[in-house]
Design a protein around this nucleic acid. Structure first.
Lengths: 203, 203
DNA sequence: CCACATCTTGCGTGTCACGCATTATGTGCG
DNA sequence: CGCACATAATGCGTGACACGCAAGATGTGG
């Protein structure tokens, strides 16, 4: 009961959080990448059914609210990789994990285009994608038997993977690309993922 | 004469721009990563010897002003790579160019630490490092004989390189790292730079 | 059913970005 | 050598925002 009871409150919080985030992204998409300034905090709050002050209890900027979904997704990158079977080679594990995480439902083109090609959102969008790096680096280090504090490989590889997915997204949004997002991500990751992880420990 | 005359105006602009940026970074460093909110626009403007309104003619946020130096540096990444001899292999060219650009004067530890480990600056800092990617991708594509619009390799590699340098910076700032920044960057780039560029064109 | 914790809300405040009009500072030409 | 023009700097006013604070609403547990 403790769990259920606590979960009730926690889920209310989560629900309003998602309501605000969803409303913010929706309104932003409606106005398009060039009219983001027209999306007022008041609009987001009322669209989410909360007070403007409450909105500010969950997010401290419009940008943060709009990119919240992307940020949450990136935060799961670590556990996505950790969930892969331990005997899978690193490169295959990374590719499989990232495909699961980012292409399980094909991303919403409008939403992704909004957060990736709106100048005012660039900073928050980069923060959102970069949030994958920490957990990813931990998971990579665990797999390669390295110390993420001492060895550069995990952190650098994580950054490369996150960057590859970001570039894949940009490419997928570009006009004239008929490929599925999964194919683009595969091709992008193939450029940076080490076929042989070369798990040398630091000298 | 046209050049000199025009240069006078342009150099005045550049000078005030640098004055503002420098003052902003200086004040931010003085307050430390935890007191950025105490750095008022008015302070930056008066420290730079300009009006607060003028400050806002050059930068539209404190964060942008503080990270301006890093952004300018990143913007030169493309030409740094393009300036390498054409017969140099891609991996060596990238490493040499990045070492020139980012380690020619060893970075200022206080400044780098400020922009890399201040939460409020994270978005702008990422934008600053990411600004290297576009020009870098162009230069890589030119070297590999690829089309940066169609092939993913240039863009992904550029993102990986920028990410590697960012991670190298973080590692270099961590306590207990006695290595020079150049060594850290070398080691980081070794994790992502393709020893053989594998210049296959897209099917 | 009641005391407590947590969430929501309204209000006030200080800061900020920016449009607009005015003044100062270079620029090029007659 | 000035004089018309372009560009930059400044002052002012406005609208919006983030956030601290305290009161009210809503669950939570005994």
């Amino acid at each position: 009961m403790n769990d259920d009871a606590m979960n009730l409150r926690a889920r209310n919080k989560q629900a309003t959080r998602e309501a605000i985030s969803h409303a913010a992204l929706r309104l932003a998409i409606d106005q398009g990448p060039h009219g983001l300034a027209l999306v007022r905090v008041q609009d987001i709050a009322s669209a989410a059914g909360v007070s403007p002050r409450t909105y500010n209890n969950y997010f401290s900027s419009r940008e943060e609210a709009i990119c919240s979904f992307q940020a949450d997704q990136s935060r799961r990158a670590g556990q996505a990789l950790a969930a892969r079977p331990a005997d899978e080679p690193l490169d295959r594990a990374i590719i499989a994990a990232m495909l699961e995480l980012y292409t399980d439902p094909e991303p919403d083109r409008a939403g992704l285009r909004m957060i990736m090609s709106t100048p005012e959102l660039e900073g928050e969008a980069l923060k959102a994608f970069t949030m994958a790096e920490g957990p990813l680096a931990e998971a990579i280090a665990a797999r390669a038997g390295m110390d993420p504090e001492r060895d550069l490989f995990p952190g650098v590889t994580a950054a490369a993977v996150a960057g590859a997915i970001r570039v894949a997204g940009r490419h997928w949004l570009a006009p004239g690309s008929a490929a599925s997002f999964a194919d683009v991500v595969r091709e992008a990751l193939a450029c940076v993922v080490p076929p042989a992880p070369a798990p040398r420990s630091r000298s």
